[in-house]
Design a protein around this nucleic acid. Sequence first.
RNA 1: UGUCCGAUAGUGUAACUGGCAACACGUCUGACUCUGGAUCAGAAGACUCUAGGUUCGAGCCCUAGUCGGACAACCA
Length: 569
Amino acid sequence: MSPVNSANESSKSLNFIQAIIEQDLRQGKNEKRVHTRFPPEPNGYLHIGHAKSICLNFGLALQYNGMCNLRFDDTNPVKEDIEYVESIKADVRWLGFDWEGREYYASDYFEQLYQYAVDIIKKGAAYVCDLSAEQISADRGTPTRPGNPSPTRNRSVEENLDLFGRMRKGEFKEGSRVLRAKIDMASPNMHMRDPIMYRILFAHHHRTGDKWCIYPTYDFAHGQSDFIEGITHSVCTLEFEVHRPLYDWFLNQIVEIDTYRPQQIEFARLNLSYTVMSKRKLLELVKNKYVNGWDDPRMPTISGLRRRGYTPESIRYFADKIGVAKRDNIIDVALLEHSIREDLNKRAPRRLAVINPLKLVITNYPADGTETLEAINNPEDELAGARLLPFSRELYIEKDDFMENPPPKFHRLSPGNEVRLKYAYIIRCDNVVKDHATGEILEIHCTYDAETRSGMPQSNRKVKGTIHWLSAAHSRVAEFRLFDRLFSVENPDAAEEGKDYKDFLNPQSLITTRGYVEDSFDQVTPLEKFQFERLGYFCADPDSSSDSLIFNRTVSLKDAWAKIEKNSK
RNA sequence: UGUCCGAUAGUGUAACUGGCAACACGUCUGACUCUGGAUCAGAAGACUCUAGGUUCGAGCCCUAGUCGGACAACCA
């Protein structure tokens, strides 16, 4: 199950990042250390795409006996918040990774970063620019046309030092001046056209408060933060590929020795079918109430998946299966669903539940008779043991398990037909009681074969189907939330002629209904997982109050109906 | 019409230093089952983007194309 194990056992098949690391190790780079980091900006909740990055970075550290830091890339105070810091830490921990106390913040390095900037100014490689944001943007040119140099590009070192110091002191208005690296306004790489290093922002920072009014940009902070922390392999997503020359340029300005230098390596971010992944869109879904928050079980956020019933193991397994490469990809969401089924099959105890009840009366069973039957908790785990189930004359079965006029390969109950009640008796349907006015089926009458109780000598008589059931008098009501994919199309982002992703929201993505569960269900703890026979995997929701049990559906079992329909053609 | 990156079954990912294109998910068959789930057995599915070249031999190396993506925030 662990990504680490599988990486070890298949030492032959390395992803390209492992190949780079192993080569670095062979060449004795960086004193043969491997040190990675997971560097989220605390401006939103983590989603399954971040999980890929977390598993990758922490996994690499584990595999190569290295370390992985948790670093908050908090260089833009206007977007960031402590709430996000807390949720990110909780999610990483929940996923099963440990940063062993190495919880760092780019904001911890503001003073050091400032000194680096001063050093670069002294070398004549940075200058204070007085242009407006609009003017800078206009002067940058286009990818095919070179930009114009700023009029202040050739200020003296002394003047730049003075101005930069006064920027820090708060003498200038927000947006009036920036510190820029003096690189090449004609570079074919837009990021090398005198990129911004510092901007003036009179904003309250969630950690440094009002100490600073100038903040470094991502480009000026990231590589240096990596350097300060001794990161060897700075793994990030593909969109930063064009930033790499700049990453290296800044490092070259501040590092003289050549024995250690962090290296940026890019990989393709995760895309999932039937899912949107961009933080902007997820935020929009939350704000416009299309979902009930970041942790809505339909969301691809880690907290949403958790409430949906996903386990950390299943997500790590998934991250391992999808691999790492540089080409754009859209992973089939079926692989995610396979991952949770794989895990839950082994560990989720089985329970009986009826979501859409139909009353079934066993006419030859004593009216006030009850008995208790033994039921296996998990056929795939002997240690899970067994429990006792009450049985009586009046039962509930699932409406779908009965058909008055069944198609050819229908293996469940129909008039004149036999079926086994799981853990109980074989029954035969004798009669269907209907409402005369509406024709609606009210209840069905059956007779049972007393010799066929599970475990009895005669019980191994074969019948085509087995259905689940609950004693009407001994079951309790519970609320079920049935989840389906949030989007009804494979690629909601590929907007076709004027449509956008919101037009593809699946109105059936959440169905709330009441049903019955075994009476013994009162000690369910939040987020406990169950497989309800033939209904799928469910997890007890933390919102559930003591007198009403609420279950969230994780993934359904494959739809039996689709098969029946196909077979009966 | 700039720079950088990418291209291998439906979807992903492999193929050590050139040597029979493999694995997983999905799909389809069948078997088994006290859930039609799970499990087990099997099948289909790839001119490795194109065209040249190097080589005894190319998915891999070279050249030229094609297609796709990223880049013009004082976001990360």
